[in-house]
């Protein structure tokens, strides 16, 4: 029973991570990334690391997610490839 929960959580975690890095829409990607953080905190609970679960929700999902969302609001558009050698 509990193993079934572990398996479902593990598969969901991988799926959410994959979606977060491959969704074309960046906003959706960030929301999925925050979800990923919450799921990781569930993993910490299952691994009996309760302190880490708290930290993960607060920092991993909370602060990191907020930082990502905040940056996303400020960005103007696609970034372009630039030659870093510097011109002469």
């Amino acid at each position: 029973m509990i193993i079934a929960f572990d398996l479902i959580l593990a598969l969901t975690l991988v799926w959410v991570a994959y979606e977060a890095v491959s969704r074309p829409d960046l906003f959706q990607a960030v929301v999925l990334f925050i979800t990923f953080g919450v799921l990781v905190s569930l993993v910490w609970i299952r691994l009996r690391a309760f302190d880490l679960a708290l930290v993960e929700v607060a920092i991993g999902a909370g602060i990191t997610g907020a930082l990502f969302l905040n940056t996303l609001g400020q960005l103007s558009g696609e970034d372009e490839m630039v030659n870093l050698d510097g011109g002469c």
Partner: peptide, 19 residues
């Protein structure tokens, strides 16, 4: 290629290592 996504990927890599 997008830098935000690369940064997200590094975070996922990190979570993987921690777990």
């Amino acid at each position: 290629r997008h830098l935000v996504r690369k940064l997200m990927a590094v975070n996922i890599l990190g979570s993987g290592v921690f777990v």
